[in-house]
Design a protein around this nucleic acid. Structure first.
Lengths: 190, 190, 190, 190
DNA sequence: CATGAATGAGGTTTCATTCAT
DNA sequence: TATGAATGAAACCTCATTCAT
């Protein structure tokens, strides 16, 4: 066997890191952060605890990485060509992207919701989260302003709140919640 | 000296139980259930750890008591005279009650939201919660049906989701969230 | 109502003390000394914990009282008219007394057996126990000596061991153990 | 440095497990199960409390392991070639094995006796214990039946009770109890 | 890179005992 | 005499993290 090249090593590292992130997310989502032990994660990922600590310097660090990873997927859905002339379709695309992520990536949403009221854990990511939220807010706010809505601020905050409310209810009762029909109602608000 | 009377003992118990419940709720809301230790509760309540266990069988039992306590306040807001003829004002009263509770009792909401995605903890109260939620659902659903709404089920679930979404956003950003204006928007949906 | 006389008070005290002793014995026998809490005893006796401590200065003291109480019943069964001329019937009476106590007072036996291998607890009663055991030993030993038995010491120790072995097996399997038939075999050893 | 091999890890575990079992047995025998704390065990074994829990799920689990370990040594002493024709010598071998174990392994006997009247603790091992006891019973019962004894059942139960009585007395007064002479008396009963 | 034994701090819980009333 | 609220020490147990190999 020829010795592995640097690239191969890096590929293995990346792959294993990804595995840990996935496994940890699923466990955090299911049991909560505090109730998930590092041992459980290592076991489910098929590695040793020690190795986990070579990828992430602490359990909290692992959590942050997971959250950052998850947040980054959102930005992609919001594609605005011209901030001064936001198209309805652009916002619809965002909504649809969001909802499809909700379905495909519900673990991340669960984790995020369950942490969103415990500022301590998320404190370190405050800046990132504020930035992200700010982008969404601007987009909708600008759109409603341009559209001449009576109170764009209130409407925007209302709409963003709805996203989370619907997400929450969908996650709590995934089988029955009428997500697609709700999507139509929301789109009608634009 | 004569021993304390039954009434005196009961008064002591009631008062201290209330104290513990309040202190625990505030800490659970702030740090989360798992991250709040019985030591912290005892310290803040000015009692020994041991005493807490004379009032509540376990930390989890304490949590359940808190949740039950909190849930019971909700029911009062939903007063329906005739289920076959629900009045718009009755639902408005419910909404207003809810929002006023959100303001005055935000700790309970915080706790409830942060637990709502960890079914394990709430499992024991599932029945109570389902009953409560069922009542709210019926009220709105019946109302929308009677009103001839196109899809009462979807609308009801949408509305209940909005409550939680708005609540969540209000709790995360209490200072700025335009709760009263949002209330008007919601009332207009009826 | 006329005030109670000193005698009445004492009668009440004695009665209550007896009640506590009985209740505690039954619980100790069932759960073991360590696994029985003072609270359990007080509850089952229908008194407060504080009161219990006015009768017995500690949980251990209560145990000692119980053991002493129980041991004293034994002596009565061993009635020897003339130590230099012990009658077979006197020993038979002792055996029968013992076995009947085993049936009627099995709680005490259970407790005693389960403690007999933990010298710490019984250490304080060592003297009493040694005295009692010594009396039994002497009686049987003298009898076998007089009777011209080859090895009275061994036979005596063997016999006393049998008592406990049979007692133990009877207590473990009270329903099925053939106590009366065993009694006859033992009597034949005299 | 290369990590330890599986074999090395296993060796460490086996050794330490054995150490803990031995230390715990000695303490349980001396103080009783309830009065022996995990701290005491850990201290005497020279390990941390936490480590004990990596070897045994709980203090009770540790106890069960000890009992199972001890029980297994018994079976070896009972070797019956033909159950329909049990030889006197086979039973003598069993008795001698038992007594020699009593001497060499007195801690286990002590523990077992002190637990035998607290069914709660042993409840989980009931099946194993019943099986073991059943084997002994059958062997002696069959032997006495074949031999034409008047009442094989009573004799067998009497004999098994004697084993325990003698064991108990030997353990309480190891220095003086005439175990070997007693052994001869018992053998004569066959 | 990889392992899992080992630690130690801190969690939940129990309970004999005290003491104000 | 009688109560049970209250304490505090100590029990059992968990787990993030370290480290020798």
């Amino acid at each position: 066997m020829s010795p592995r090249t640097k690239e191969q090593f890096e590929a293995i590292r990346n792959e294993k890191e990804k595995l840990i992130l996935e496994v940890a997310l699923s466990l955090f989502a299911k049991n909560g952060f505090e109730s998930t032990s590092v041992s459980m994660i290592a076991k489910k990922a098929g590695i040793s605890k020690g190795l986990m600590y070579s990828y992430f310097k602490s359990k909290e660090d692992l959590l942050k990485e997971i959250i950052l990873n998850g947040l980054n997927r959102f930005i992609d859905f919001l594609k605005i060509e011209d901030p001064n002339n936001i198209q309805k379709q652009e916002l619809i695309n965002f909504i649809d992207g969001n909802f499809s992520l909700l379905k495909s990536n519900s673990d991340f949403y669960k984790l995020y919701f369950s942490l969103s009221l415990q500022p301590k854990v998320l404190a370190v990511l405050e800046a990132e989260i504020a930035t992200l939220f700010g982008k969404f807010f601007s987009a909708f706010n600008n759109y409603f302003e341009k559209k001449g809505d009576k109170n764009p601020y209130v409407k925007t905050r209302y709409l963003l709140a709805i996203f989370d409310g619907v997400g929450l209810h969908y996650l709590v009762d995934t089988k029955n919640y009428p997500l697609d029909e709700t999507r139509d109602i929301i789109v009608d608000l634009l």
